[in-house]
Design a binder for these strands. Structure first.
Length: 460
RNA sequence: UCCCCGAUAGCUCAAUCGGCAGAGCGGGUGGCUGUUAACCACUAGGUUGCAGGUUCGAGUCCUGCUCGGGGAGCCA
């Protein structure tokens, strides 16, 4: 007999004479001549109560049915006579697929600290919380593809291995097959003997490649892992994380803002529709404010504040900031939090930053001092999205590269796009894990990644 | 990388002023019960993160290291 997902059984309107379920025992409760198993197979948050009677409730078998063990059960799905569940499985046969020594099995029914569960990342998806979280993560990824597909975007598989350091966004992981690193000043090409014959890295962003394809297919997006070798130890940073990077030709900053807002809102809508039970767990155990905060993400248009106005607001706020607000300098975390959480009380786009504090590829505004940039700030998580209209004018782009000290030669292909059929275009990057933190209330990025990579942490 | 805090039983934590290292949960054993965070009794379980120092005496004070948490910077 083929196995049926517990989720399918619990949704049923009528019972079933013969079914087979497979899963892991969460708990066992014994009564006289009858035992109750809570069985979970990962298909949903809820367990299926399995009834063992007669020979199946015999001591030798029960001793093996401990928390964490894997079993296959066949029997009848019947209405439960007791309160607590609608359906239960009256077992006729049970096979122990894999035992779990209760002396050493680390998961118990009681809640564990997140820090402890991180140390057993191979087992934590068997807990209610992390099972729910990674089902939500999967569903959110599907919703990303659905969102872009409905809007005529093509999914671009941008390269993971790269020879450029893209936008200079952060420190790079070097990739090499050499046993010994070449000397620092080793001749004309110190990497001549390496696999690619030149320096190679893991990508920090698919943006530049996405721009190339947007200027051919019109609308594209990347959705994949990116890597930053920064020694940043915070609850919001990881060395390997997934980014969603749409890029649109024939689009300006306004189009960019609209797309980012629509994406965040649709992802929230999708999860509220398709992950209701799993989200309820987070509202109950992780963040009681979660339902209100999700509503706040979809209820109203997001605020928009140009950088210059943001500075004026912060200066007039009379807040005892640890770092004073300096016009021309980037906003501090405390400034961003004040703007978003206290001043507007909902997501806010800050736009038109001074060009000196933004990368070379952002389009210079008519004032010559600011660029068509945007950051989307959201409560608790901070910067969720960073994007811009891209500089499509060859001469202006070359001047900006010169100003920021970037050599033109490695970017010849990027410049070519401005040389041949250049068009206005815009895009952004959205940190997938940061969205998941926002959507679940989980406070640490390490807990929304199956196997997080952070400085000095590469187990699993 | 910088600043602050922490590390005690399998887990979550307590231990007063430097003076006998404890509880709950989990595990084991027995009992009870269509149970459901089950309940009752008994029981095992410790190099107090590691290395050094001060002291008659260190879980407690000092130094270094490792790991973890919070904040900052960098950013998504």
């Amino acid at each position: 007999m083929k196995r049926t997902d517990i989720r399918r059984l619990l949704e049923r309107e009528a019972g079933l004479e013969a079914v087979r379920v497979c899963g892991w025992v969460r708990t066992r409760r014994d009564a006289k001549g009858i035992s109750f198993l809570e069985l979970n197979d990962g298909s949903c948050l809820r367990n299926l109560q399995v009834i063992l009677e007669g020979s199946l409730a015999e001591e030798g078998l029960l001793k093996r049915l401990t928390t964490g063990c894997a079993v296959a059960v066949e029997g009848a799905l019947v209405a439960s006579p007791a309160a607590g569940q609608r359906w239960e499985l009256r077992a006729r046969g049970l096979e122990v697929l894999g035992e779990a020594d209760p002396e050493s099995y680390p998961l118990q029914k009681k809640r564990h600290r997140d820090e402890f569960l991180r140390g057993i990342a191979h087992l934590r998806p068997r807990t209610n919380k992390y099972g729910a979280l990674f089902r939500i993560r999967s569903e959110a990824a599907f919703a990303v593809h659905r969102f872009f597909r409905e809007r005529g975007f093509f999914h671009l598989h941008s390269p993971i291995l790269t020879g450029s350091d893209c936008e200079g966004a952060g420190e790079l992981f070097r990739v090499t097959t050499l046993r010994e690193p070449p000397p620092a000043a080793g001749g004309e090409n110190p990497w001549a003997e390496d696999f690619f014959g030149r320096e190679a890295h893991l990508t920090v962003s698919g943006q530049l490649e996405a721009e190339l394809f947007a200027c051919a297919l019109g609308r594209v997006y990347t959705f994949g892992p990116t890597f930053r070798a920064e020694n940043s130890n915070t609850p919001r940073h990881a060395a390997e994380f997934w980014m969603i990077e749409p890029e649109m030709a024939f689009a300006d900053l306004e189009d960019d803002l609209e797309l980012a807002e629509a994406l965040v809102k649709q992802l929230v809508h999708h999860l509220r529709e398709h992950c209701r039970e799993d989200l309820e767990l987070f509202a109950r155990w992780v963040d009681p404010e979660l339902p209100a905060r999700l509503e706040n993400l979809v209820a109203r248009p997001y605020a928009r504040i140009p950088y210059a106005e943001a500075v004026r607001i912060l200066q007039a706020a009379g807040e005892p900031f640890e770092f004073p607000v300096q016009p021309g300098a980037d906003l501090q975390t405390e400034h961003e939090r004040f703007l978003c959480e206290r001043h507007v009380g909902r997501p806010v786009f800050v736009t038109d930053y001074p060009k000196e504090i933004k990368p070379f590829y952002m389009r210079v505004n008519d004032d010559g001092r600011t660029v068509a940039a945007m950051d989307l700030l959201v409560p608790r998580v901070g910067e969720l999205v960073g994007g811009s209209q891209r500089e499509e004018r060859l001469a202006v782009l070359e001047r900006r590269m010169e100003e920021t000290g970037l050599p033109r030669e490695p970017y010849w292909w990027y410049l070519d796009i401005r040389r041949y059929g250049t068009v206005p275009h815009a895009g952004f990057g959205l940190g997938f894990e940061r969205f998941l933190m926002l959507a679940t209330g989980v406070a640490n990025i390490r807990d929304v990644i199956p196997f997080p990579r952070t400085p000095r942490s590469l187990e699993f």
